[in-house]
Amino acid sequence: MSENSNNEQTLEPLSQSPKTRLRRSPKRAVFDRQALYNIFDEAMVAHVGFVQDEQSFVIPMLVWRWENRLFIHGSNGSRMIKALCGEQSICITATLLDGMVMAKSAFHHSSNYRSAMVMGSCYVVEDKQEVEQALEVFMELIAPGRWPHLRPPTTSEIAATTVLAIDIEEASVKIRSGGPIEDEGDLEWPVWTGELQLRQKVTAAVEDQYSVGEMSDYSEAWGERWSL
């Protein structure tokens, strides 16, 4: 593609609804739409919650964002994909665990995190050209510049794949950062306190036996997480 479709721009803030309003620790609510975008862009794995035959399911899936939509894909025969093709309300959540917060007391231990939730209904991307473009966006988010070097998808591969999208309209973001919140009477207690920081990293590129040529530089997609 000629440019990254997810470039940052001036965005409307997230609005609240009865479903998305935070009742627990509301001060951690963030209404910056770009913050939500950043969470899903970094997490890549999100949990998709839905109900089928009166049974609740929450399934981890690779999820990607293209402008103001989230996308998931799967086989046409997938039970989950079939269930999501309807008009039922679903919930997609992504969480990044940034650190474990170590306090003076067990009660005040916590975690630093960034989490985002999108609710609504999925719809099938019907146009075959848009399906292929959405898959290209996904690939370029993982490995910039790789798509043009790959064997093009066949007609049967596209036909066997369902791509679903959900507009990012009803959504919320919750973020915690910083150190522990201590009781005043505990401040002099003699124990180490602080944060054990956690970060996902790209640590190795293991070549397959059928690999040909040198690996391209994909570090742009991973930023500080690229540790090769």
Rank of each mutant, 00 (worst) to 15 (best):
W192Y: 09
G120V: 06
S25D: 10
G185D: 13
Q133M: 05
E207Q: 15
I72Y: 05
Q16A: 14
L96S: 03
I181S: 14
K104P: 00
A165F: 04
E207S: 14
T93G: 07
N68T: 11
E188D: 13
I90N: 01
R28V: 08
L150T: 06
G145L: 03
E184P: 00
A94Y: 01
N112V: 08
P18L: 13
G194Y: 08
G179T: 06
H149R: 09
L36T: 03
M80C: 04
E67D: 12
G120Y: 07
I92Y: 01
E132C: 06
A35W: 00
L150C: 15
L96T: 03
V173N: 09
I175P: 02
V101N: 04
D208S: 15
E182R: 08
T154K: 11
V58P: 00
E195I: 15
V202T: 03
V101P: 02
I175T: 13
L70K: 01
Q209K: 12
K19F: 08
D53M: 06
I166D: 01
Q197G: 04
M102L: 15
S15V: 13
A103C: 05
Y123H: 07
M139L: 11
I181W: 06
D41S: 10
E214L: 11
E224S: 15
R33A: 15
A43L: 04
E42C: 03
T162Q: 13
V212A: 12
K128C: 06
A171N: 04
W226S: 13
K19Q: 11
I59C: 03
L141K: 09
M61N: 11
Q52H: 13
S110L: 08
G185E: 14
I158P: 00
E140T: 07
L135A: 02
D41C: 08
E67I: 03
F71N: 04
D217T: 05
D167W: 02
W192I: 05
Q200W: 06
P18I: 14
V63A: 02
A205F: 10
Q133L: 07
K27Y: 09
V63C: 12
D53K: 13
M102H: 10
R69T: 08
I181D: 14
G77S: 11
K201Y: 06
M1D: 03
A35S: 11
P180W: 09
S115W: 05
N38G: 05
